[in-house]
Amino acid sequence: MIVVEDIHVTFGRGTPLEKHALRGVDLTIPEGEFVTVIGSNGAGKSTFLGSLAGDVLAEQGRISIDGTDVTRWDTPRRAGLVARVFQDPMAGSCAALTIEENMALAAARGRRRGLGLALGSDRRRNFRDRIAALGLGLENRLHDRMGLLSGGQRQAVSLLMATLAGSKILLLDEHTAALDPATADFVLELTRRIVRDNRLTTLMVTHSMRQALDYGDRTLMLHEGRVVLDVAGDERAGLDVPHLLALFAKQRGGVEISDDSLLIG
């Protein structure tokens, strides 16, 4: 469970470029819930996920994960609780290391790393089985460098890596945005499967209203650093993309946006 109490984040405080990116976000996300997050560019979505992961520390407010106050914890310390997949397929893995080395890195997330071999034969076998389950034929390419994989393959492996260490929270920041539509669909379906099988508490940022409504149990809209829409259950089931677009437009100051390619799922 994630409990966020009134968190604020300001970038460049005291400079002409000061940006109050999060202005009091209050949220409780129960265990196992799959939340989709939408909002226009600069709404604060990435900042919000970053504040959960520890990349940006909230200057005010409190964040607790599974009952532990993690407000002042930095990223490596939170990594045992939180797994992530980034928008840029290059960002979430090490291109110069092999697939199995990347997996070994992820498998040790949140543990002390000692002088034991990173890739024993047991672990190799386990990795082979896990990656075979993706159905991409990567089980024979464990020694290949990660950089040789396509963007979609890298995102798929990154998702798998997120499940190797048993953390219960998954943060996805537009993790399909860099992929072509067919690959994006594949990665989204994989996401759905992995979230369900591992019962992960998930936040997924997307620019597609369609995806936001089709995936997950609850949808948040952020605007100017605040949560302006929070729907779940029947209310959400009754929502359609045009409704959401209208709500979205209202938040943007009533400007009608019908043909924003970013928003059509």
Partner: peptide, 26 residues
């Protein structure tokens, strides 16, 4: 040493520090 868990984390630090931190590497 470099093929140990600690050594692997050191290599990741040089390749992609952001990813390494997200994987819990100090």
């Amino acid at each position: 040493f470099l093929s140990s868990e600690f050594g692997l984390a050191m290599r990741a630090t040089g390749v992609n520090a952001r990813m390494a931190r997200a994987q819990g590497v100090n």
